[in-house]
Simulated assay, not measured.
Amino acid sequence: MEAKATAKYVRVSPRKARIVLDQIRGKDVARAREILMFSERAISETILKVLDSAVANATNNHDMSANNLVVKTTYADEGPTMKRFTPRAKGSASRIRKRTSHITVIVAPREEA
């Protein structure tokens, strides 16, 4: 049995989120929380909330012990991109792409992962 939590439409590019998600994949929950709390990247705070939500889903919905959980899978899918324009030289314009991502964290008991 595994528990899952997702944060949708997070205003960060998936590429930046994947850097932090790769660091916690496969670690036990206590170690993953430690890595996220001391990470200097801004997205780590959001990922910590998603991880805590996945742990809460596991304990409340599936009666799993929080001490025995491991981060089984993490991924950041691309969400919709907001397109904006900024003025450039000679009356032209450049496109600014404000990317969003959907961050998913799946936790499972140590034996399954």
Results as ranks from 00 to 15, higher is better:
R31H: 05
S53H: 07
E78K: 12
A32V: 00
V10T: 06
G91C: 14
A56R: 04
R84S: 08
V50K: 03
S39Y: 07
P14S: 10
M37V: 01
K16A: 04
T104A: 11
M1W: 06
K8C: 02
E45Q: 14
D28S: 01
S53I: 08
M37T: 05
T100Y: 01
R99Y: 05
S39I: 03
S53D: 13
I43M: 08
G79P: 07
A7H: 08
V70N: 00
S94E: 15
R18D: 08
G26D: 05
I19W: 06
V20L: 00
D52T: 00
R95D: 03
I96C: 09
H62Q: 14
P87N: 12
D52G: 08
P109F: 07
S92Q: 15
L51M: 10
S39G: 04
A30E: 11
A58S: 10
T104W: 13
S101F: 03
A66T: 02
S44Y: 04
M37N: 12
P14K: 06
R11V: 07
E34C: 00
D22N: 15
A42N: 15
R18M: 14
G79N: 09
V10H: 04
A7Q: 12
R15Q: 14
E111S: 14
E112A: 13
K4I: 13
G79I: 06
N68S: 10
M1D: 09
T104G: 09
D77P: 06
A93F: 15
A5W: 03
S44F: 05
M1S: 10
E112H: 08
R25C: 05
T6A: 11
S13E: 01
A54I: 10
I24N: 00
K8L: 04
V70E: 00
M1H: 10
I47H: 02
T86C: 07
R97K: 15
A113W: 07
Q23G: 01
V29W: 01
S65I: 05
T6R: 13
N68I: 01
K4D: 04
S53C: 11
E34T: 03
V29E: 00
K49Q: 09
A76W: 02
S13D: 03
K49T: 05
E2R: 13
A93K: 11
V10R: 06
R11K: 14
E112S: 10
P87K: 11
I103M: 09
A58T: 06
L48K: 04
T46L: 14
T59E: 14
R15D: 08
A108T: 11
T104F: 13
I35D: 02
H62T: 05
P80Y: 12
T6M: 15
D52L: 02
T86F: 15
A108E: 11
R11N: 10
P87F: 14
R15T: 11
T74K: 07
I96E: 09
P109Q: 14
T86E: 15
A66K: 11
Y75I: 02
S53K: 10
N67T: 06
Y9I: 05
A66C: 04
V20C: 00
P109W: 06
R99M: 07
L51P: 03
P87R: 12
T81I: 15
T59N: 03
S44L: 07
A54K: 08
P14M: 08
V50H: 03
N68G: 02
K16Q: 08
D52P: 00
K98T: 05
S101G: 05
K49A: 09
A89M: 13
A54E: 11
E112G: 02
A54C: 12
